[in-house]
Simulated scan of single mutants.
Amino acid sequence: MYRTVDLFAGIGGIRRGFELTNQFETVLAAEIDKYACETYKHLYGDDPFNDVTSEEFKEKVTRIDYDVLLGGFPCQAFSIAGKKEGFMDKTRGTLFFDIADILKRTRPKAFLLENVEGLLRHKKGDTFETILKVLVQELNYTVIGVRENSLVPEELEYNSKDFLVNSKDFGLPQNRPRVYIIGFDKNRYGSLTTDLAMKELPKKRPGEPMYKDLNDLLEFNANQEYYLASGYLQTLKDHKNRHRGKGNGYGYIVVNEKGIKNPISNALLATGGSGKERNLVYDPQDGIGGTVVKGKQTPLNDEGIRMMTPREWGKLQGFINYGFVKDGVDQFSFPSKISKAQQYKQFGNSVTIPVIEVMAKEIGNTLDKLEAAIQTKTSNDIKTEVMS
């Protein structure tokens, strides 16, 4: 069983994906959002409240015996380095620097880092390249998808698209491309990482999809509170028409609109309005249109358009109906005091659990091979020494 440390843990999506493989156990977590901490504690029984940037937490990690560092981290701008600075110095003041600092101090056998697709384009790719150079050249990890140039050692060879993995290819109807960076400790394994490590990131989940399409996942005849007020819907239409007139594609989207074959959702976002408005759904039912609902300024729309529910977001991320099913019973729940707004935020901020599970299996299998090879090499070295 490999032991993991879970940074920027949110509500534990990465943790859950790893634990589903039965190859990993979590020994420490870090999260500073108080509402996410409440949900995390509710789900796992552990309080993750720790600040990754603090010296106190970093010292705590150095005292932990663990194997794999996990974490999603915000994409932040790096400084312009002076001539004598290394690439790691460029990242000072960012959360990636704190990840790199913990890697340097504790040398885990492997790591998995997750980020948004925009990381690849940030600063025209310079940010992503700096991250890779820190991991490969300064910390001496083999990063999957990166080749070192034997002729020009300071240059790395890679295709940034190789780091993109999309939830829609892992059994869930959500278009959610995310960047994954996986590495193995070259100090420990040497050239074995080249010979035995996984060659590329898994891009697909084996087996049948969990849902045929978005309509198969949606829970139709939703409560009237999720339907848009007619005035609000008209505002969204006017906004979309204004942008369309300027040649822009901004605006609300009904993702399962009539005529769409095999509909899927857009990426769920932690931000309130935009994450919901680009994932509206068509769910007509009698008695909804024209209904006056407390808290809405105008009656409900008569087109059957509503927001997705938090439960549906939870299904799209693999928390509900997958990640916490035990003996046929779904055991996922939020603490009673977590508001619906927080539920949307927490699911939108999280990862898609089945994606992580597939990644974790590959990491676990690679570590098994590397550790077995290390043990064989050690045994052979001892035999050679005895014979000599």
Rank of each mutant, 00 (worst) to 15 (best):
Y2V: 03
Y2L: 07
G10K: 06
G13C: 05
E19K: 09
L20M: 13
T21Q: 11
F24D: 06
E25M: 05
H42P: 01
L43T: 03
T53D: 10
E59M: 04
T62S: 15
G71C: 10
C75P: 12
S79F: 00
G82T: 11
G86H: 06
D89P: 09
F96Y: 12
F97E: 13
D98T: 01
I102H: 10
I102G: 02
I102M: 09
K109W: 01
L112H: 05
E117K: 15
G118M: 09
L120V: 08
H122E: 03
H122C: 04
K123C: 01
T127V: 10
L132K: 10
E148D: 08
E154F: 04
E155K: 14
L164C: 08
I181A: 02
K204F: 12
P206M: 06
G207P: 03
L214N: 08
A222M: 02
G231T: 03
K237C: 07
K237N: 13
G245W: 05
G245P: 05
G249C: 05
S265I: 04
S274V: 13
G290P: 07
G295C: 00
L300S: 05
E303N: 01
E312N: 03
Y322I: 00
G323D: 05
G323M: 01
V325T: 07
P335S: 13
K337Y: 08
A341F: 01
A341S: 14
N349P: 07
V351D: 09
K361R: 15
N365G: 07
D368V: 14
S388W: 02
